[in-house]
Every structure is written in C-alpha cells, then in structure tokens.
Amino acid sequence: MEAISRLVAELDAADQKAAQAAIGAGFAYGLAAIGPGVGIGYVVGKAIEAMARQPEAAGMVRTTMFLGIAFTEALALIGFVVFILLGL
C-alpha cells in the first residue's frame, strides 16, 4: 500500500488521476466480489447437500440453484462493470 502511494506521488497531475482511478477500480471489483463469492459458495453447497440427500429431486434443485446463483452473481457483475467504467 505504501509502495503504491509512493509511486503515485511521483507522477504528474493527469497521471495521478488515472492512477487513482485504476486503484479505485481495483478496489471496487475486489470488494464487490467478496459478498457474492461467499453467497454463491453457500448456495451451491446447500444445493449439493440437498441433491445428495434426495437425488430424485436433483432436477428441481438444480434449476433453483441456478436462479439463486444468477441473483447473487448480479452484484459481482455490477462491480465488474464499474471496474470497466472506472479503470479503462
């Protein structure tokens, strides 16, 4: 962190702004990925547990699992879009 700020301090104004945007974008994506990462892990883990307990309901569980993943994943994807908008 310190090394990054020392590097940033050496740049001129325009480059400094770009560097700060890039750092912000990196943090935006990194932070946005934490919650959905935990969430998707939880959804899939529980779905696998349910499928193992009741293999005949696997089709229904899989459909619902994909729905859950899709809703959870949206947050991470918004983070990714912000990352593109800020960083590039």
């Binding site: 949206a74 994807l77 918004i78 990714f80």
Partner: peptide, 13 residues
C-alpha cells in the same frame, strides 16, 4: 437492467 447486465457482463468478462 439486472437481466441485461448479467448477460452482458458475464460475456464481456
């Protein structure tokens, strides 16, 4: 919007 962004961002990523 979330429907569109889900497809778009996944493929772009």
């Amino acid at each position: 919007f979330s429907l569109a962004i889900r497809l778009f961002a996944n493929m772009l990523a």
